[in-house]
Amino acid sequence: MSDLIEFLKKEGVSTDLLDRVGKYRKTADGIGLPDNIRRRVPEPEVRYYGTKVWEKAVAALLCGENLLLAGPKATGKNVLAENLAELFGRPLWDVSFHVNVDAAYLIGTDTYDGNKVVFRPGPVHNCATYGGFGVLDEINMARNEALAVLHSTLDFRHVIDVAGYDRIHVSPAARFIGTMNYGYAGTRDLNEALCSRFAVLDMPLIEEKDLESLLNDVFPDLKPKIRQQFVMLFYEIEKKAEAAEISERALDLRGLIDAIRLMEKGISSGDALEMTIVNKTFDAYERKLVMDVIKGRIPTDLRRADIFD
């Protein structure tokens, strides 16, 4: 955790905010966590880069707000969510939303323990009990009526009324972080009632210098000149997708990082990029266009020794 604090200080995040995070942690540490729950405090490998976004997110969470991270692909929504949980030192529950998510899925459901029918708590219930961070991933994929159950959890009432069981007060340490992408198929606009319970953070695409730092972070041995070309390649693909000349499938930051990882293992640059970026588009013509962009930046026959020091 201290690494993360150091990182944030280096990134220029307000020390005042970080001090207040320290105070939060001291208060929240009082909430006892069983070992199996303590293991849920994440230690992500990748850092989120973007000072302003960090400051906004930390400030909102300190104020007790829930966060809604809205933005297109490759903006680091989940990375930020994990980083925030680590910073605040809280266990994390990931809830992937889909069409069939319902109240039982979120709050909990009845189950038979071999002897009697008991309540099996869902992730939102667990978050509320243990003061965890609940990441409601792709929140706009679910039906709005399924989400209505969250209203009382997210607003000033901070309660979950489990029908037939108990009324649980949400721990003051608990926070919910929704992520959403407006563009994905099957998504819908969040209804006003739910939206008003979040502070919405519009996630920008990672900045050039931040992407370079990120690559440097993950691959410290990557040659600076090559690193810069990877960064430029990412933005060139992004521009092409923005101009609607190709789909967004090839715009994949995870794919780029995976490609460099493959190169580290000895795969040639051309093959690695083809596997992790080019082949993500299924149209033969589009692949050619993506390949043209790559060929204009990265030689396809680079080996490990050409790329890493």
Binding site: K239, E245, Y285
Partner: peptide
């Protein structure tokens, strides 16, 4: 289309 895409890409401008 492929040719013009290469041009746009190098120019950094699709407009």
């Amino acid at each position: 289309r492929r040719a013009v895409n290469i041009i746009w890409n190098a120019a950094g401008n699709y407009d």
